[in-house]
């Protein structure tokens, strides 16, 4: 082979190796996103692991106490409500249901709070009797009204993802979620094509493996650099949300996704090491 031909081959293989690195990055990135940000189980796990339900419980209690103050219900009444009726576990269950519906594009306007309303009504009746009220029809009607309005407050907070802006996102998410895997598959196909081209250009293993190693190590760097910088700069922590529960959830999701992408760099990194070992043997045996 002439010098010019060798140089041309070298340039073409470098470009193909670069395209291969992009395809590896695309495949791993799309697969990671499909398993994290686009996966309802990941979102549910993030909500459970963060302090989302604890913060939401505190926010709900503040609203309930304020509403109660306008209805002549003491703040102390709600201590038992938030110990026995509306617990972090019950909020977690409702949150899980809301998130799964959100990812499926089936957001509901209101959750079924019949059981909560009955529980609130029963306790309000006991509270009214304690305060010296007789449970006449009028009083019972008033207590039903309070229970119903408290359930509306509960719905407004727990079903936050059913707000109109989130409904649009939910529908888009449900429609385009599968495309994450399609993009990963496209990246895999591009990788295969690049690999075949490189393989066809060289006879000796040590030559084409060099370009494979370039591609895999570049992909490792691409997957690692940006997420690491974002994590170190705490981009997730600077998100503009004034609500403590949503803030916790949002930062948990962001940091979780960024961390997963950075961790996914281990896949091409491992392959880089394996290929380096194989090439080392090939160089030793001049193959």
């Amino acid at each position: 082979m002439t010098k010019t031909a060798k140089r041309t081959r070298s340039v073409i293989c470098t470009i193909v190796s670069f395209v291969m690195s992009l395809s590896i990055t695309l495949t791993v990135l799309c697969a990671t996103l499909s398993l994290t940000a686009l996966n309802p189980t990941f979102a549910v796990r993030t909500a459970m692991r963060s302090e989302y339900s604890e913060h939401l419980s505190a926010e709900l209690k503040e609203e309930f106490v304020s509403f109660g103050n306008a209805c002549n219900v003491d703040a102390a009444f709600f201590d038992s409500i938030f110990t026995d009726v509306i617990t972090p576990d019950s909020i977690d269950r409702d949150t899980e249901a809301v998130l799964r519906e959100f990812y499926a594009g089936e957001v509901q306007e209101k959750r079924d709070t019949a059981a909560l309303e009955d529980a609130l009504f029963t306790r309000l009746q006991a509270y009214a009797v304690e305060k010296g009220f007789t449970l006449s029809d009028e009083v019972n009607e008033n207590l039903r009204g309070i229970s119903s309005e408290l359930c509306d407050v509960y719905n407004a907070y727990v079903s936050v993802f059913s707000m109109s802006v989130f409904k649009t996102v939910s529908r888009l998410l449900a429609r385009y979620r599968p495309f994450g895997w399609y993009a990963a598959a496209a990246g895999a196909v591009l990788f295969a094509v690049s690999a075949v081209i490189l393989r066809l250009y060289f006879q000796k293993k040590k030559n084409y493996l060099r370009y494979f190693i370039y591609a895999f190590s570049a992909a490792t760097l691409m997957l690692l650099t940006a997420p690491l910088i974002a994590l170190i700069a705490d981009i997730g922590g600077s998100i503009s949300i004034s609500n403590a529960s949503l803030y916790d959830f949002a930062t948990g999701m962001m940091n979780g996704v960024l961390g997963s992408i950075a961790a996914s760099a281990a896949v091409p990194a491992l392959l880089t090491v394996l290929l380096s070992l194989v090439r080392h043997n090939a160089v030793k045996n001049n193959r």
Partner: peptide, 13 residues
């Protein structure tokens, strides 16, 4: 050198 060049080219792209 090549992986770092690929990284920079990838981000520039």
């Amino acid at each position: 050198l090549f992986p770092v060049v690929f990284l920079l080219c990838g981000y520039m792209l």
